[in-house]
Design a protein around this nucleic acid. Structure first.
Lengths: 143, 143
DNA sequence: ATGCGAATAATAATAGTTCTCATTTGCAAT
DNA sequence: ATTGCAAATGAGAACTATTATTATTCGCAT
């Protein structure tokens, strides 16, 4: 269906290889927005692309450095990645079903900058995760 | 020097044992505010208290559940604990020296609640970590 | 087509944490 | 004070996520 798009890899200084294209396309396909290394590995195997788990880890890290992906460290120890679409956002994670919802709040962002600069810090980065339950009895995000 | 204070353990429904008292007192001593399991383990061994690493992990988790301690998952994968002193706060972590500074911003807190409730989530918890550099050339928080 | 440096796959190794289970301990009831 | 027993501990094995090692393979400029 969708052809590989090596331009993004080349412009990131990465030579275009089969595993890299497969991983990038998996994220671009939009099937699942947030995936761990294990998730990516399983998706690729399931769709017949033979790949090594170590390669998945390496490529995800490279993509993070190339700013193609963003890494998140949610509770639970494992890193989760998502396509970097330019617009920063924070996350609400449902503790019942694991569903991740994104949000952006300008007021929160600007207060953070203020707090940090008042204390003499130059902000690199931040992570804001709200851990919550879907309110309704039948959690709408069952997996 | 400082006597054990079993009241806190009892009221948390935990029977007062030697390792638990030692760990609680270590945090209360205030020497170091933020410690990983490994940190706690080393401190205890260094002060002559023989303890098992598995016990440290177990007790830290129990103390978290009993709300005696708060767990933080900063970048880097390992959990860090601090004494729960009632007042919630967020953290700025200096990427140069690892120093952790605490802050509280009412505006950020209330915006978070608003964002979550608008989306039908009941907030359990949140974590906000700002990763930054101390602005000055000579980072004031050298370790 | 071919050669070389980079990338890969398989596997071993590591770090952080949890589990298992035999032994010990806290403490309530004698 | 002793005893009994459930709960807690310690030692090490096991587990999970991730990184390192290395021989083989691949992308791509020539």
């Amino acid at each position: 269906m969708d052809k590989p798009q090596p331009e993004h890899l080349k412009s990131a200084g990465l030579k275009s290889t089969v595993p890299r294209l497969n991983i990038l396309n998996l994220f671009k396909s939009g099937q699942e927005r947030h995936m761990s290394a294990e998730d990516v590995y399983k998706h690729l195997l399931a769709s017949g692309d033979d790949v090594g788990l170590a390669t998945v880890y390496r490529v995800l890290t490279q993509f993070e450095q190339a700013k193609l992906l963003v890494r998140h460290n949610f509770e639970g120890g494992k890193s989760v990645f998502e396509l970097n679409q330019g617009k920063h956002h924070d996350h609400i994670v449902c503790l019942q079903c694991g569903h991740v919802e994104e949000f952006y709040d300008a007021a929160i962002e600007s207060r953070q900058k203020k707090v940090a600069s008042e204390r003499g810090f130059a902000v690199h980065d931040h992570s804001l995760h709200i851990y919550a339950d879907c309110v309704r009895k039948n959690c709408p995000h069952k997996r």
